[in-house]
Design a protein around this nucleic acid. Structure first.
Lengths: 194, 194
DNA sequence: GGGAGCATGTAACGGGTTACATGATTGG
DNA sequence: CCAATCATGTAACCCGTTACATGCTCCC
């Protein structure tokens, strides 16, 4: 028991353990899809190859265990979290510091560099971003509805609802930004104002 | 002129060119600090070592040019964007597709896994997140005020103002999430409700 | 039987981080 | 003169992506 500090696993490992912590047996493929439709809203989706690689590592560490294909005949390797895996994840959640949310917003970057861009194109990019946020909001809403149905899924339901509200907020922010953009575009050209 | 498609530079390169596109001569150190106090709000801050490495690459590509230390005696290498650098950046802004904003939200991840956590600790994490958003909002507000002063900085001013509003929105979202958390915590234990 | 989606993987690459080292300059 | 900050860099590492390969299974 000299394992005082955590094994220092990469983010993918914690994400996968988290997905498995809800008690289902899942394949790499399942994990990818589920991550894409829930984790993706507030965290991130690892590439498939990374998922499979990480699953093998977790297995050698004894944090997950390969279980026989449930359905039967498909060549589909299912994984189940072990007691040790749950304990490790729980310890990580309790002990590690969350750190600040990381955002990387390509559209905002372009607005920031608006002085180098065509104003019409810039505006169009922001409009597309706003529409994208609306679409994401809908997707999150569906995920929230699904999670809300299950017993014991109160937390995923809460966080997907939060995601939905977050996307809606970003929609509004994009609209406000568009107003600012129009104001700037109206002032920039040698205008005949006043 | 066979350079039809972009040189496919990494994100750091575009960030640095962007910082330099405002016309000032900057050192690696300056770039780091300025990135940390503006770009960081909506994009990201590369590690110092990465900045210096990338600057050398940009120089060999002829996109930036080393200029003599302005102040004089300090051992401080300043860089200036070249005409080719501006043209390349401009072309990238016009041609490349922004892609979706990427968020990686460690606190949301923990809420999502709330079933493995102590409710009091979870609540505390969200409170800390909210306070952090408030602090960031203030920082963005200051950056917006600075940018608002300069002529020709309308776009940075707009995007920092947008950042500020974004942080405020996240504050509110965190408060709503706290309410949800309390609701869940109130229901979970074998309660005497009704 | 053939195509669409399922399912798992390999190999190469590089971007970015972490940790560390070094010296110069400034201010008390 | 000493400490703090400024300023630049090296070296090692590895996570994660991209591109590609493979075969299975279902269904028409």
């Amino acid at each position: 028991m000299s394992e005082r500090s955590q094994p220092a696993l990469p983010a993918t490992a914690w994400a996968l353990l988290g997905l498995l912590s809800f008690g289902r047996d899942l394949s790499g493929y399942d994990l990818r899809r589920w991550a894409a439709s829930s984790l993706a809203f507030f965290y991130w989706t690892p590439a498939p190859s990374q998922i499979y690689a990480e699953l093998r590592r977790l297995e050698t560490l004894g944090l997950v265990r390969a279980v026989g294909p449930a359905g039967g005949r498909r060549r589909k390797q299912l994984y189940r979290i072990t007691a040790k895996g749950t304990a490790t994840l729980r310890r990580w959640l309790e002990r590690s510091e969350p750190g600040p949310p990381v955002v990387k917003h390509p559209t905002a970057l372009r607005v920031w560099l608006g002085h180098l861009m065509d104003t019409a194109r810039l505006r169009e990019l922001v409009v597309r971003h706003r529409d994208e946020m609306a679409a994401q909001g809908e997707a999150a809403g569906k995920a929230a509805a699904v999670a809300g149905g299950h017993d014991g899924w109160e937390y995923p339901a809460a966080i997907t609802a939060w995601s939905q509200r977050s996307f809606r907020a970003q929609q509004r922010l994009a609209d406000e930004l568009l107003a600012d953009l129009d104001r700037i575009a109206g002032q920039r050209p040698p205008s005949t104002e006043d």
